[in-house]
Nucleic acid binder design. Structure first.
Lengths: 231, 231
DNA sequence: TTGAGTCTGTCAATTATTGGACAGTCTTAT
DNA sequence: ATAAGACTGTCCAATAATTGACAGACTCAA
């Protein structure tokens, strides 16, 4: 899903069930934005007056500390909506957001968001469901970061990153630098490099410049601690 | 707030704005439950058919790993509601929940929850706001666990734990074992003990059996990395 | 094609954290 | 009063992870 139409984008949002007459209005209030690679769309602490859906390209949500350490909280791909938290609770943005590539997004102003919900309040429950999804991901992140050793977290992350373009049998390379993987896990690049090359020596992975491929899905799943699910 | 009335409990919930006529009905559908210390109320993975508000006592939300490592995700005190995530998204419980003391809770069945929202859909927005609050806490937890060194996280946790019974000037002891603190942070008891005794030697804390008191709030806040907020 | 910038593998030194062990103290229930 | 159990401080050895450094490979744009 490297590009998503406006139509699809709304069907993927928490407004998918909005009645047609309100939907027309909502769509009319949204506008396309084109971002260059490296453009910082949101800053932590800003007021939130809109949420966004991704049409093409990619953004990252990030956090950094006083120490200068920076980490990637989430990678946002076409079809995803983000920035709705501040619209719901009227509090500042939780994270910074930056385009990693030339990116096209749809901007939904807070006024349009609020209007649609007031017109069809049942939508708020869909928003809740969307937030629950986020919450479960966040819980998983907390637990894994504190309870699992680095190799296991790394294995999970590789599977997660590679999952989308799942070609099943064929060996497929996923584009991502070790630096980026390290930032997603909140660890040093060297630690990632060490483990990946070890796995490459073990024949589990194949590494190449700026990319990796999983050769032995079964073993990497075992390392990730996934239950074997027989059917 | 060591005990909360039924009245207060509902005012603290996401149903605080429910119209009186529906509120009566909702309250009628809720029932009190008395839990012994150590009673496991919810298990991760269970179906969720109710949410709960705490009247008195205390529960903990926990997670454990295959390795046997266990950690405390949250401490739930009187006035708090929990268990609503599964009601919203109809998915299994995210965490186990155990009473740490004899505890009285109010059980709200899913049927009552769903009915109230269908009667007054605007309530769903309050549920969303409640979920956002959780989400922000979870985000903070992820970032802190990955970006901050143990001493800083520990300092933050002490301030957080001690906050409720804030007597301002007077030196007040907070009951909590170092083991419990360690489980909240996902680190070993020894690491916690080492840091706490060091701070006690520095005159920042006073330690006693199963409790601690903060002697120098300013310094502990500095260690926690809190901005000095002049007014 | 050349140079700047990025990515990778590797190493050594250092620091942080764990886990096992144990003695002494405190609390509670019998 | 006593015994069982929990809590604390401490030590040590082993492990894990970070940081800084550097050379070679790769990519892209001028």
């Amino acid at each position: 899903m490297s590009v998503v139409s406006h139509e699809q984008l709304f069907d993927l949002s928490f407004f998918a069930n909005l009645a047609p007459e309100f939907m027309v209005q909502l769509k009319g209030a949204c506008s396309e934005m084109h971002l260059e690679a490296g453009h910082v769309l949101l800053h932590r602490g800003d007021d939130g007056n809109a949420c966004f859906g991704i049409i093409s390209g990619q953004l990252k949500a990030f956090a950094h500390e006083s120490t200068g350490k920076e980490m990637t909280l989430a990678v946002l791909n076409p079809g995803h909506w983000f920035g709705e938290i501040s619209l719901v609770d009227n509090l500042p943005r939780t994270h910074g957001t930056i385009a990693t590539q030339p990116t096209v997004i749809l901007k939904m102003p807070k006024t349009a968001f609020d209007l649609a919900i007031s017109q069809q309040p049942s939508i708020a429950m869909d928003v809740s469901r969307h937030l629950c999804q986020r919450l479960r991901l966040a819980f998983t992140a907390v637990e894994e970061s504190l309870l699992l050793p680095l190799p296991q977290r790394l294995a999970k992350k590789l599977l997660f990153i590679q999952a989308p373009q799942d070609n099943q049998q064929a060996k497929s390379f996923t584009q991502v630098s070790q630096q980026e993987i390290a930032q997603m896990l909140g660890v040093s690049r060297q630690s990632v490099s060490k483990q990946l090359t070890q796995w490459a020596k073990d024949g589990i992975l194949e590494l190449s410049y700026n990319s990796f491929a999983i050769l032995d899905t079964v073993r990497i799943q075992a390392l990730a601690g996934e239950e074997t699910v027989p059917r």
